[in-house]
Design a protein around this nucleic acid. Structure first.
Lengths: 335, 335
DNA sequence: TTTGTCTGGACAAAACTGGGACAACATTGC
DNA sequence: GCAATGTTGTCCCAGTTTTGTCCAGACAAA
């Protein structure tokens, strides 16, 4: 299990060229340089030949500044802020953005003044409360606000993941009704599905097919993976849940995918899983690595071992393995 | 009731540019300046280059004044009031307002304009091609572009609906693979789900519970309904697919919904449908009208007739019925 | 060779400012 | 009922500040 500080800290190692930063942030190359020249918005390291090298930290900064500008902030005002201050500003702005207007003071329970806490558990609790009271609007709002407080990968790991577990657990214990769980799932489906569009794509990204196998109807895990890998420069080919092995293979081949990722959650002991995984393994051959994750993956670990598949335990581990695949460093268990 | 801490927590430090104030309050930049010029509604500080800088206090003032204007107050009357006096006025008005409820004249960006386009079939074809070639990015782009050409209701009826039918048909005929259908469905799920956020909510909208009954796993129809009714000033309580009758009832009661809408698509002859509908009908009693739509609704028309439920044939008919419910004109078949 | 990045500067578009005009609408006085 | 008057949202202008884009010539990478 990856430790928290590993997850939530942003890598400050400089390694990205300016073009990639432009693609990731949606800014133009010229603009990034102009901002640096005029306001020292970022101060990238340089290669030995004076090329700018940006860190993930820089990228996050630039992205936040872009959002702040969209919200009506002036560049002069936000340029000197630290990353944390930027997050606060953006978070505050997006809270008020346009809607909600009136009713604000009536509607907001006083104990949920969000943005103060850095403790993610508070966020999760507030979200659970919103679910319980069927306050959809508040739920959406909390999801949105929480996101700007940290990086997307950290958010998925520290907020969305725990939230899903707690909702599942509460429903099982009868503390939430099925209706509550359904409502939350539907909103999360929309929210996580939209996360992918935070990235801008150039068309040259490596592709990864993401889905769940036949019988696995829960798609949120797979969807989280799709959002996650898009941050690292993958183009997810997302197929939704419940896709037969043959179809996954066909899709991987047609789209020229470099990897396939499956998510297993429920039911954990579906007898179709071994069949489907075996089939997939043989048809994908050694060409395309196959990753199997999700809470039910552990239940099949002998099978996964036997087939020589990858089964990263955390989203962070998955990211790391995929980075290796992307950069051609992958020396995995496929032969 | 505005509490003391609310007031004292408002920051009087001037730091927000006018554009941000416009975003937050929903006023135009011009209007904010005009109000200042004529009535000194606010008196913002200035930057060293004469740019206006507003405080949180100013923003709160402007927002309250806007609400007061919406409630029919004249600017001359409210402009000189203190923040506290403004709060009193607004809360008094809104109390009065709640009694009357439906005023219709809300601040709703009614993009229900016709602007009928002729070549929707071309759009659908282009989308089908994108699906067939697994060009997700193009698919998303087409979905997005198509929307700006016409109103949301028209778009759903003339593009999304036909697209769904053609994808289903093509897959049945083997012209598309299941993988293609899955990909398209996943993207449409995200896209339609996000449509709801184009509307802004005030908190006083009537609610409608939208879902599909047990056994019905296809949710796109229900999701379309959710997006559609939000245009007409409903707040959809969307529960996703496959919700048991008891849960639907519980949700409707907890949220105080004024209507319930179900979507039936596949399988059309699921034996659970009669059971669930009957159960729903009896538990909702005559208090909350129940609408049943979707391609499989016709298959159950005797049942629907017998139970005295509503089954509008088109999305437009559904809208019309819901408008009647909202305005208290509903004289439907419930007794 | 071709393509991309670098620096520094020029230029143009967008946004903001004060001032005022004007049309749509509401209210007042007769 | 009607004209005069008041109210209010929007737009235009000309001048300034802020911000995005482009260019040229040198160098680096593929």
């Amino acid at each position: 299990m990856a430790s928290l500080e590993t997850i939530s800290s942003i890598d400050t190692a400089p390694r990205h060229p300016i073009r990639l930063v432009a693609n990731r942030t949606g800014l133009t190359v010229d603009l990034i340089r102009a901002w640096e020249k005029r306001y020292h918005v970022v101060d990238p390291a340089r290669s030995d030949t004076k090329r700018r090298l940006y860190s993930d930290y820089d990228i996050e900064r630039l992205r936040l500044i872009r959002i702040a500008k969209q919200n009506g902030r002036r560049l002069v005002d936000v340029a000197p802020l630290t990353l944390e201050a930027l997050r606060d500003v953006v978070s505050e702005d997006s809270r008020y953005d346009q809607a909600q207007d009136n009713q604000a003071e009536v509607y907001r329970p006083s104990w949920t003044s969000p943005l103060e806490s850095t403790d993610t558990q508070d966020d999760v609790d507030a979200m659970l409360f919103a679910v319980q009271t069927m306050d959809q609007h508040r739920f959406d709002q909390l999801l949105q606000e929480g996101l700007v407080k940290q990086s997307l990968p950290a958010y998925l790991e520290t907020v969305i993941g725990p939230l899903l577990r707690e909702i599942g657990e509460s429903t099982r214990l009868g503390k939430l009704r099925i209706a509550h769980e359904h409502m939350a799932t539907a909103h999360l489906r929309t929210f996580i599905g939209a996360l992918r569009f935070r990235e801008t794509y150039t068309g040259s990204e490596p592709k990864i097919v993401i889905t769940t196998p036949t019988g696995q109807l829960h798609e949120l895990g797979a969807l989280m993976v799709a959002a996650l890998v898009s941050v690292d420069g993958w183009l997810p080919v997302y197929l939704g849940p419940n896709t037969p092995a043959d179809e996954i293979v066909a899709c991987a081949l047609q789209s020229g995918a470099r990897a396939v990722s499956l998510s297993l959650t429920y039911p954990a002991d579906d007898p179709r899983i071994p069949t489907e995984l075996t089939r997939l393994r043989s048809q994908l051959d050694g060409k395309i690595p196959l990753f199997v994750g999700g809470s039910a993956a552990a239940h099949h670990h002998e099978l996964i071992d036997r087939l020589g598949l990858e089964s990263p335990l955390t989203l962070d581990a998955l990211r790391e393995s995929l980075r290796a695949v992307r950069d051609g460093r992958y020396q995995g268990r496929i032969k």
